[in-house]
Design a protein around this nucleic acid. Structure first.
Lengths: 146, 146
DNA sequence: TAAAATGTGGGGACTAGTGGGGAAAAGTGG
DNA sequence: CCACTTTTCCCCACTAGTCCCCACATTTTA
């Protein structure tokens, strides 16, 4: 299971967004959407999420920092199911966080999907490209390659 | 049983708050609400509470610190039941402690639920995000990743 | 070119959120 | 100990939001 590609969709009036058809099978057992970095929504398969949750749950509950991380991680996550047509309804807190209202980009990022508002995605891609050329330097000079 | 998500409710005139529908089944045998860290109310399932109570009760009664912990833990806890509509009445001492009067946020935090006044929750979330970006450093350095 | 699949929109049943009434229990004062 | 008052708890009603299902139109594929 390896998510690739970039797909444009439109949020319908009820706040639902389509999942790319090729990926739908991976979410048969459920989809966990949560708050990602940089104002995007991250979608994990049920299995991937279960592994992540294990790690977080093992953090010490006595430390205030760890408590806060747990609060953020778990309270931002919603376990949902795709409907028969391969869509998922985005919970309001996540939609607000990702500033999604109409045009949406769903991107495959290896082990997970990311759901972006198109505006933020376009802006982010410029940053990605800038970053990529820097990394490319590193690649050709051998720092990062292989 | 893994509590997730963030839900907004309103305290009704009788001091009751709704429990998210998906979680109601977990509290069939009772719900234990108690004083949590950071001015929130924590809700455990009966089974989870029983395990915790075992641990606390096994602390040595000769130690003054342990006695104080026991006093706080047990005297702050209330074993209640959801009503037929999935609500629970919050005991006054807890309501005061959590500064809850009208708008309420119920958050899933893995093994338990947390009940917050919305004002405090919003403030806490900012702190959570700060904390998370620190931890993110740790993630990339391999402490938690993979 | 035809057929299958996918994106988008909408309707209707059901569930859930909120408010209120009445009975039982508990607290208080005589 | 009893009577009265207050609170708590359980039940029901109404409204609004959610979810599931289906239909259509456009796109993709064979």
């Amino acid at each position: 299971m390896m998510f690739l590609g970039e797909y444009e969709y439109r949020l319908d009036q009820k706040g639902r967004v389509a999942i790319p058809p090729k990926s739908r099978g991976d979410f048969q057992d459920g989809i966990v959407v949560t708050r990602g970095y940089d104002n995007c929504i991250v979608a994990y398969t049920a299995a991937t999420w279960d592994r992540l949750a294990e790690e977080y749950a093992s953090l010490p509950g006595t430390d205030q920092g760890a408590r806060r991380v747990n609060r953020l991680v778990f309270s931002s996550a919603f376990r949902l199911n795709l409907d028969r047509l391969g869509r998922v309804g985005l919970p309001t807190p996540l939609r607000d966080y990702a500033q999604i209202d109409d045009e949406v980009v769903v991107a495959g990022v290896g082990r997970h999907l990311e759901i972006w508002s198109k505006e933020l995605w376009v802006r982010e891609r410029e940053l990605m490209e800038d970053q990529a050329s820097e990394i490319a330097q590193g690649l050709t000079s051998g720092t990062l390659s292989r």
